[in-house]
Design a protein around this nucleic acid. Structure first.
Lengths: 249, 249
DNA sequence: CCGTATTTGTACGTATGTATC
DNA sequence: TGATACATACGTACAAATACG
């Protein structure tokens, strides 16, 4: 018996492009467990044979599924089925990084990547109620849970008031603990704006994502209980690994 | 003078793929106003000539920018630069569709697309605290602002209590007004879970998006002031047109 | 209303580069 | 080092949708 293509469900000139049909086939194969999570798909050439199309047509299907966050292609290794479960990250009046993930990840930490003093941009100055160009400290940090990157935050603090917060942050690995050293025993989230976009090159590297991955972006201002702004932060979350759970603000 | 390619900044074997370099060039051209918002790019063949590459290489660059939400390609017409401003949609304890967009859009409405009675899935039954399989009414609606689709909601209500809510919804175009007819004068948002993903085929059609577009997804439960769940809803927002502003929950 | 030109979309082929095993 | 597998880039042809005379 010859090794015929199993392409019974792939139809030409059906109004649906071959690559879309193949992508749907792959999704179906994943759904029924034919292709399993965290395992490699057959090589592109094998899939091309199976569906009776050119390798490029299979590539178009795979590219679409990589975009959709279903697959991950690694040059020289293979194409893998990603797992679907997500961490649920709480957002609310008292959002704290490590506290929020309790019970979902056994090991959580925040890694300081960079700390720089710079003049405040208009956006930062407005949020922190500072004069345009006043010195601010910018902290770049990555949140990790069980060894996986789950967030990437850029925060700004007034440089004069929080001089040395970078050292505190490097030592404690916690914004909350660092702020306490500066007499901030409590703080609240004043505002949060949420959007989503494709990860840019920096996000891809920092969060270990594939091109086309989606990041959820929160832009927030934290204030002391009496309403004084102390932190302005933009945080990117990989949408394929994190969902945000809104609690009381 | 010959019509030389203006490809001074496109370099081969530089470690960066040609399509990525061209995508970046296009972004730069948009930034400096060489290509303008809401106008067509030169045809693919013209760009291929300009950059001194094959048409497919230009197509790869355009595909990436379509993914990133910067461009929109239309068969037979051309490729267009999208505009960047977003509606800011408030999410909070008293989120209401039309009220939230006041001042941002002059014309707002909610269009009922479909109303169906069906047995509750496990997810819906759990959220509404109903028995598995109890009848629920599913409403499919699209939110529009100034003629553009800005949301796509799927809502479930207990069928017995809210029989006829589809008619009320079709008539009033408002969930709030429809619920009032059933004695619900006030309701609160109990929980909201937020995620993002690529739009699926249905989203693309309903929200008039291009393949690869991103949708913000909220899954929410609304309850009466005494805590009784009355509505379970999943809403998709096109990320390129909407951001979510979290207010007091 | 029809036919033609323009423009993007799909599909094939081939060759070579690059990363992994 | 060689073999394997994905990535990039070229070429060609035709299909499909739109624009325009």
């Amino acid at each position: 018996m010859v090794n015929r293509p199993v392409a019974k469900s792939i139809e030409r000139r059906s109004g649906v492009s071959l690559w879309r049909q193949i992508a749907d086939q792959i999704l179906h194969s994943i759904a029924i467990g034919d292709f399993v999570e965290n395992a490699a798909l057959p090589p592109e050439m094998a899939l091309a044979d199976r569906y009776g199309v050119n390798r490029h047509t299979v590539r178009a299907a795979i590219a679409a599924l990589v975009q959709e966050g279903v697959l991950r292609a690694e040059q020289g290794r293979g194409t893998f089925v990603l797992s679907r479960k997500r961490l649920s990250y709480p957002i609310g009046a008292r959002t704290r990084f490590s506290a929020g993930l309790q019970g979902q990840a056994s090991e959580r930490r925040s890694v300081l990547l960079e700390a720089i003093v710079e003049p405040a941009s208009r956006r930062v100055a407005d949020a922190l109620k500072l004069a345009r160009g006043a010195d601010v400290i910018r902290l770049e940090a990555r949140g990790e849970a069980d060894g996986q990157s789950v967030s990437r935050a850029t925060s700004w603090f007034e440089a004069r008031r929080f001089a040395g917060i970078d050292a505190a942050m490097a030592e404690t690995g916690s914004i909350t603990a660092s702020l306490e050293r500066f007499g901030v025993s409590d703080y609240l989230r004043q505002s949060t704006v949420l959007s989503a976009r494709h990860a840019d090159a920096a996000d891809l590297a920092d969060l270990d994502l594939q091109p086309g991955a989606i990041v959820l972006v929160t832009v927030a201002v934290n204030v002391t209980p009496d309403g004084q702004p102390i932190q302005f932060a933009e945080t990117r979350f990989p949408a394929e690994r994190v969902e945000l759970k809104l609690s009381a603000l």
